[in-house]
Nucleic acid binder design. Structure first.
Lengths: 252, 252
DNA sequence: CCGACGACATTGTGATCACAACTAAGTCGA
DNA sequence: TCGACTTAGTTGTGATCACAATGTCGTCGG
C-alpha cells in the first residue's frame, strides 16, 4: 500500500489499555444457558478477586466490550452491578475505575471480614461432611502452599479464595455469602498490590488449623482459625504500609 | 378521531400493576446534577426500605419506566444494581421481583445486622458532636414514637431508618455503610409485611438508650443499645411467625 | 521554554429497535 | 366439562445511534 498523505493518519495513537481480560468463551459451562452479561460479570469478578486489574485503572465500556468481543450493552449492566457492590468506583465525572485503596478503607474491610467470615464458617460447619470436607480442603490448601512456595501471587490469590469459599459456601447462606463476596471483591485488587510489594514469602496462614477444626467438628476453633487467618493478613498489610505508604495517599 | 371497528380492540385488558412509585421529579435536589438512572435507583431504594413494594411483586422494566416517565434504559441499570445487592430477585426465567422472605433468610439478615450495626455505631461515636447529635436524634426518635402511636407503618419505617442511619453515616465508613444499607434493603419489604400483620403497637425500641449512650460518649453502651434494638425486632418476628407462618413457606 | 487555546477523540447516557423466550388469555375439540 | 392448542401480548436481551460532557493532544503565542 502507498502511504497516502490525504487520509487522516491516526496521529493519536489509540492508547488502549493492555487487555487484562480474556475474551468470552462461546459457552463456558456445558448446559447452563448464561447470558452475555452474566459471563461479563463473572469475568470481571474473577479478575477483581484475583487482583488481575490494578487499583486506579480505568475501566471503559467500549474498551471492555471490545476485549470481550461484545457490544457495550452487556458490559454496562455488568459494570453497574459491580459498581453497586462498590467493587468498581464511579468517579464524579462518570468514569469508572477500580477503586484505589486507602488505609482506612482497608482496615475496615479487614474488620468486616473478621466479623462476617467466622460466622459464615460456623454456620457452614454443621452442614459439612467433616471427613470429606477436610480432605477436599486439604487438597486446596496444598495448592495454596505450592503457590506460596513458587511465589505465584495470582495462583495464591485464586487458591486462597477457593479455600475460604469452599467453607463459606457450605453455609448455604444467601445473606452472608453475598456480603462476604462483596468484601472480597473490594479486597482483591489491593491485596494483590501488597503481595506484589512485600512478596508472599513471609505469609503464614491458619488453614491447617481450620481443616483440623472441621475434622473435629469444633465450631469455635474453626471460627478462631478464620479470624486469625484474617488478622494475619492485617499484619502483613502493616508491614507493607511501613515499607511504602506512598500509594495510599493518592487521591482516588 | 373516529372509533374504527377494524382496529383490534384491546380485548385483553392491560393488567398493569398499580403504580407503587411516584413519577420522577424534574430536578430532585437543587444543584446536584443526578442522572435519570440515579434518580430511579433512589426511588427504588426508598420504596424497598420503606416497604412500599410487596415481596413477590413483579418488577418490570417497561412498567417501571412508564411509572417513572422514562425509557426502560435507565431502569435496566438501576434494577441491575439493586439485583447485585440482592435487593431484587432475578428469577431463573429472567423476570424480576421483590424477593420473598424465608424464615432462614430473615434470621440471617438480623444476625448480620446485629454483627455490623453495633460496630458502625461504635465507629461513629468518636466522630459525633455528642450534644448536637443527641439533640438531633431525639427529634427523630420523637417522630418515630409519634408514628408508632398513630400506627402509621410507613412513617415508622422511614423514621426508624432515619434514626439508625443518622448514627451510622457519621462513621464515615464506606465499607460498613454499604454493607448495612444492603441488608436494610432486603430487610424492608419483609418487615413492612410483619408490621402490617402484628401491628406496631407492642413495638419497643432502644433508641432512648442509644441517645443517652451518645450523650455520655459511651461506645459500649451504644453498641449494646443497637444490638438490643435489633434483637427486639427479632422477637417481634417470632411473634409474627407463630401468628401466621403460611407466607414464609411460599417458594420464591 | 512554557502556558493557553482549539480541535478532536473518547466516554457515559438515554432512547429506540429487533428478537427470542415466555405467559396467559382465548378457542376448539374430545 | 375439561383438556390441549393457538395466538397475541409481554418480558428481558443485546445492538446501535445521537448527544453532551470530558479529557487529550497538538499548536500557537508569549
Amino acid at each position: 500500500m502507498t502511504t497516502n498523505g490525504a487520509a487522516p493518519t491516526p496521529l493519536r495513537r489509540p492508547r488502549r489499555q493492555a487487555p487484562a481480560l480474556p475474551a468470552l468463551e462461546a459457552h463456558p459451562e456445558g448446559a447452563v444457558r448464561t447470558g452475555v452479561r452474566d459471563r461479563v460479570t463473572e469475568a470481571l469478578r474473577e479478575a477483581l478477586i484475583i487482583g488481575r486489574i490494578q487499583p486506579g485503572r480505568p475501566v471503559t465500556l467500549r474498551g471492555l466490550a471490545e476485549q470481550l468481543g461484545t457490544s457495550p450493552m452487556p458490559v454496562r449492566e455488568a459494570i453497574r452491578g459491580l459498581a453497586a457492590e462498590r467493587a468498581l468506583d464511579v468517579r464524579e465525572n462518570g468514569r469508572i475505575a477500580v477503586p484505589r485503596m486507602t488505609e482506612q478503607r482497608l482496615s475496615e474491610i479487614l474488620k468486616a471480614r473478621a466479623l462476617l467470615e467466622p460466622v459464615a464458617a460456623a454456620l457452614a460447619l454443621p452442614r459439612l461432611d467433616r471427613k470429606a470436607a477436610a480432605r477436599r480442603l486439604q487438597v486446596i490448601d496444598d495448592a495454596v502452599d505450592a503457590s506460596l512456595k513458587d511465589g505465584d501471587v495470582e495462583a495464591y490469590m485464586r487458591h486462597n479464595h477457593a479455600f475460604h469459599f469452599a467453607i463459606y459456601e457450605a453455609s448455604g447462606s444467601d445473606v452472608f455469602l453475598p456480603l462476604i463476596e462483596s468484601v472480597w471483591l473490594r479486597f482483591g485488587p489491593f491485596m494483590r498490590m501488597v503481595y506484589g510489594r512485600v512478596g508472599t514469602a513471609g505469609l503464614v496462614d491458619h488453614h491447617k488449623a481450620a481443616v483440623a477444626a472441621i475434622a473435629d467438628g469444633n465450631a469455635d476453633a474453626l471460627s478462631e482459625a478464620i479470624r486469625l487467618d484474617i488478622a494475619e493478613g492485617m499484619d502483613l498489610i502493616r508491614d507493607a504500609l511501613v515499607a511504602g505508604a506512598a500509594d495510599f495517599a493518592d487521591p482516588g
